[in-house]
Nucleic acid binder design. Structure first.
Length: 506
RNA sequence: CGGGGCGUAGCUCAGCUUGGUAGAGCGCCUGUUUUGGGAACAGGAGGUCGCAGGUUCGAAUCCUGUCGCCCCGACCA
């Protein structure tokens, strides 16, 4: 039959990348759209995945001295009004609560009543409400640094949304810190960027560039914004995390002051930083293939799924027992801060369909276990990072002793593959013509995948940056933190300190 | 906020031009045969046709209004 060529996800990445992405999110059971415009329902499989992101990141924040706290969902309007740039940045996309009661209207409807004296804003981010607390918590240099994180949901009223990548409501963490000196705050900004890069590369197996945003891409109210940028499989860039050096902007607007050792009243230097459920989307687009999701083992909700093949077994119960014993043995093995997670799928549906469901969900290792395997004291293993056709019989105890290393091999393989992909589509470009050529969509393809990361010299002129964005839809993704050689701007011929990374972006 | 499009079963949609008992595929339930690569057959459940008016003996279909959603732009993690 022609089924051999059939992929689990349709369309494929080549055929229609954006649609492929939506299909993977749905077919992998990560999330679905909701009755509420722009908001998603995160399903159990997606939620389990996010919980792993949270658990690991939270541990990293604690390890760097941060404490969790929780601040209100609602922010008084006057708080947001305090920092001018901040207002400009977020005013256009805020959900505003104006009433606190519903009254019966005509025909069983409900109408808002009890208008609030001061409208409340559903937080788009919490700098202002946390800054207010900081202004009371911090009195002396002895209170510094103050290192706080919160896990929360935020709302930004987006025009166009895509599951995980951009939704009106999303889950994230936001770190907020206050320091005595500029240097210390800047150091914190860099340190947390390193944490994000570490998480992205070593847990998500997603290679990232670390860099600084240009003025145009900076967080509203920040002095400097640093970021990690990653390349998706359509060669577009995705900002996966940001850290902000806020200088004294918020401290001055919100009166966050401390008394120094010399007894003088000084303004604090603050930072903020965050990553969101967008990371889940980033992971889908970094590792997913035409058969669905492909999970890096260190974050996978399940490492191994056992599929008991009991259909034609003489003694189905014996096969099940064999599977459960195997699961128990595997669950005893430590793996990156937890145990090997095992699912046994004993649902009464056909083996083929069942198998493909787990392929789509991206579980690193699938084990088909039937009478034959039991008789041979072995398992029939398939790896998600290889073709669904490639399966091999492995002796049971050998598998158990190897599984940890196998997962590590898959983790490393995913990272290497992603690095190779990014490098294959990253080029140094030294003329504007070549630059335009690089980002020109090929003719005749419905959803042309093209371009990539262009490393080019740039003088930093904001008007030029804007013009390139208008004409090509290409922006400076970041000015890399790593050292680079000087040169001349490919657009203006003016001197340039180093190459910057240009790309189309999400 | 501009410019298009669409609301009919859980999902994807047909039916509407030319009014006459509500349809298909997928999914779901039951049974049988199957079961180590995406099952077949048989039976079954499931819809105030977005909502409100109007025209008509009769409206998913025609008219008016209204609400919602999607796509393309401008804006964004």
């Amino acid at each position: 039959m022609a089924k051999q060529a059939k992929t689990a996800i349709s369309p494929t990445r080549d055929e229609n990348y954006p649609e492929w992405y939506q299909q993977v999110v749905r077919k992998a059971d990560l999330a679905e759209t909701s009755p509420v415009r722009g908001c998603m329902v995160i399903k159990p499989w997606g939620c389990a995945l996010w919980e792993n992101f949270q658990r690991v990141l939270d541990g990293m924040f604690k390890a760097t001295g941060h404490k969790n706290a929780y601040f209100p969902l609602f922010i008084p309007k006057r708080f947001l009004e305090k920092e001018a740039e901040h207002v400009d940045g977020f005013a256009k996309e805020c959900a505003v609560v104006t009433h606190h009661r519903l009254e019966a209207g005509p025909d069983g409807t409900l109408v808002p009543a009890g208008e609030l004296e001061e409208p409340l804003i559903v937080r788009p981010t919490s700098e202002t409400i946390i800054g207010d607390a900081f202004s009371r918590w911090i009195e002396s240099y002895r209170d510094l640094p103050l290192l706080i994180n919160q896990w929360a949901n935020v709302v930004r009223w987006e025009m166009r949304t895509r599951l995980f990548l951009r939704t009106s409501e999303f889950l994230w963490q936001e770190g907020h810190t206050a320091h005595a000196t500029s240097e210390e705050a800047m150091h914190e900004t860099e340190r947390m960027l390193d944490v994000y890069a570490d998480f992205a590369e070593n847990w998500m197996a997603m290679p990232v560039l670390t860099g600084e945003k240009t003025a145009g891409e900076r967080f509203p109210g920040a002095v400097r914004t640093l970021c990690i940028e990653s390349m998706m499989q359509d060669r577009k860039a995705l900002q996966a995390g940001t850290t902000h050096f806020l200088g004294q902007n918020f401290a001055k607007a919100q009166d966050i002051t401390y008394q120094s050792e010399q007894g003088r009243l000084e303004h604090c230097w603050t930072t903020s930083w965050g990553v969101s459920t967008r990371l889940v989307g980033a992971m889908v687009m970094t590792h997913g293939d035409d058969d669905g999701l492909c999970l890096p083992p260190r974050l996978a909700p399940a490492h191994v799924v056992i599929l008991p093949m009991t259909g034609r077994a003489d003694d189905p119960e014996a096969v099940r027992n064999y599977c459960h014993k195997l699961a128990d043995d595997l669950r005893g093995i430590p793996y990156y801060g937890r145990r090997i997670e095992v699912e046994i799928d004993d649902r009464d549906i056909r083996g083929g369909e069942k198998n493909w469901q787990w392929v789509r969900r991206g579980v690193p290792i699938r084990l088909e276990v039937g009478q034959r395997d039991m008789a041979a004291d072995s398992v029939f293993m398939a790896r998600r990072d290889k073709s669904p056709k490639e399966k091999e019989s492995v002796e049971r105890t050998a598998f158990i002793s190897r599984v940890h290393d196998l997962l590590e091999e898959i983790q490393q393989g995913l990272f290497d593959r992603a690095v190779a992909f990014r490098d294959a589509h990253s080029v140094e470009i030294d003329s504007e013509d070549a630059f335009r050529e690089f980002f020109a969509a090929p003719q005749g393809e419905p959803t042309p995948v093209h371009g990539g990361f262009a490393w080019s010299h740039f003088c930093g002129d904001e008007d030029v940056e804007q013009r390139i964005n208008d004409e090509l839809g290409v922006t400076v993704r970041c000015i890399p933190l790593a050292d680079g050689e000087a040169g001349t701007c490919i657009f203006t011929g003016k001197p340039s300190d180093k190459r910057v990374v240009w790309a189309k972006a999400y």
